Amino acid sequence: MGGGGGEGIEKMVAVGLVWGATNALMRKGALLWEHRQSQLRRSHHRGLLGTAREWAALLLVWQYTLPFLLNLSASAAFFVALGSSPISLAVPVTNAVTFASTALFAALLGEPTRLSPVLLGTSLVALGVWLCIDSSKPHVPS
């Protein structure tokens, strides 16, 4: 098992990118489902059966289900990556990349975005990821 080398970091960044992209895509799919549901609403049947029907209807929307399945696959890859990376590095790097890529992909999908705060936040995230990666490297005294 590796000790959090470059390969482990690459896996974490890849998982974060997939999570970010699928978060934005699932939001689009959920909005589509909400729109369809609002057009079909005849009566509210709440309770366990009504909730199960709504979940089934959501899972039948491929624009939600495919990104959801890809997101779950990335979760499995994350747990595999945890086997070869320290959790103190894996969690912050993956979550930071997820945050930044969710903002990026949401903007690419046409969601209204305030560019300046997104760029500032993404820059701070990148700085934080760099600090996490740099602090995990063994430092040799000069």
Rank of each mutant, 00 (worst) to 15 (best):
residue 44 H to M: 05
residue 60 L to D: 12
residue 91 V to D: 08
residue 121 G to F: 10
residue 56 A to L: 14
residue 70 L to A: 15
residue 52 A to T: 09
residue 112 P to R: 09
residue 126 A to F: 04
residue 67 P to I: 12
residue 47 G to F: 03
residue 92 P to R: 02
residue 90 A to D: 00
residue 60 L to T: 05
residue 98 T to C: 08
residue 36 R to W: 09
residue 14 A to Y: 03
residue 77 A to K: 08
residue 60 L to S: 10
residue 33 W to Q: 12
residue 105 F to R: 04
residue 109 L to N: 10
residue 36 R to K: 15
residue 119 L to T: 03
residue 102 T to K: 07
residue 96 A to W: 00
residue 72 L to Q: 13
residue 13 V to D: 11
residue 66 L to A: 13
residue 86 P to D: 11
residue 130 W to C: 01
residue 106 A to N: 07
residue 87 I to L: 10
residue 120 L to D: 00
residue 16 G to W: 05
residue 32 L to G: 03
residue 85 S to L: 14
residue 71 N to D: 09
residue 16 G to M: 02
residue 134 D to L: 01
residue 80 V to M: 11
residue 18 V to I: 15
residue 122 T to F: 04
residue 81 A to S: 11
residue 22 T to S: 12
residue 48 L to F: 08
residue 75 S to H: 06
residue 13 V to P: 06
residue 109 L to H: 04
residue 123 S to I: 03
residue 60 L to Q: 15
residue 77 A to C: 13
residue 118 V to F: 06
residue 48 L to K: 11
residue 91 V to F: 14
residue 46 R to Q: 12
residue 83 G to S: 13
residue 105 F to L: 13
residue 99 F to H: 10
residue 23 N to S: 06
residue 67 P to S: 07
residue 97 V to T: 13
residue 61 V to T: 12
residue 86 P to A: 14
residue 51 T to H: 09
residue 32 L to Y: 04
residue 109 L to S: 05
residue 45 H to I: 03
residue 29 G to P: 06
residue 76 A to K: 07
residue 44 H to G: 04
residue 53 R to M: 09
residue 35 H to G: 13
residue 52 A to G: 06
residue 89 L to A: 05
residue 133 I to N: 01
residue 120 L to E: 07
residue 38 S to G: 00
residue 101 S to V: 11
residue 26 M to L: 03
residue 128 G to M: 04
residue 69 L to M: 15
residue 73 S to K: 02
residue 14 A to W: 06
residue 32 L to Q: 13
residue 33 W to F: 14
residue 95 N to W: 02
residue 34 E to M: 07
residue 105 F to I: 06
residue 33 W to Y: 10
residue 112 P to I: 00
residue 100 A to D: 01
residue 120 L to N: 00
residue 82 L to M: 15
residue 13 V to F: 13
residue 21 A to G: 09
residue 117 P to V: 00
residue 78 F to E: 00
residue 129 V to M: 13
residue 16 G to P: 05
residue 36 R to E: 14
residue 25 L to D: 01
residue 83 G to T: 12
residue 131 L to Q: 08
residue 73 S to L: 15
residue 22 T to L: 11
residue 79 F to S: 10
residue 116 S to C: 04
residue 85 S to G: 04
residue 125 V to C: 08
residue 85 S to F: 02
residue 99 F to R: 02
residue 69 L to T: 11
residue 112 P to F: 10
residue 72 L to D: 02
residue 87 I to Q: 04
residue 41 R to K: 14
residue 49 L to R: 11
residue 124 L to M: 08
residue 79 F to P: 01
residue 45 H to R: 08
residue 63 Q to R: 04
residue 55 W to T: 12
residue 50 G to P: 01
residue 117 P to G: 03
residue 85 S to M: 14
residue 41 R to H: 12
residue 59 L to H: 10
residue 51 T to E: 12
residue 76 A to S: 07
residue 97 V to W: 01
residue 64 Y to A: 05
residue 14 A to T: 08
residue 19 W to L: 06
residue 54 E to F: 02
residue 85 S to A: 15
residue 88 S to Y: 02
residue 50 G to E: 09
residue 51 T to C: 10
residue 36 R to S: 11
residue 77 A to I: 12
residue 45 H to A: 05
residue 102 T to L: 07
residue 62 W to P: 15
residue 120 L to A: 12
residue 122 T to L: 04
residue 53 R to K: 10
residue 102 T to W: 01
residue 14 A to L: 14
residue 22 T to D: 08
residue 81 A to Y: 03
residue 124 L to I: 03
residue 43 S to K: 08
residue 38 S to E: 15
residue 44 H to L: 03
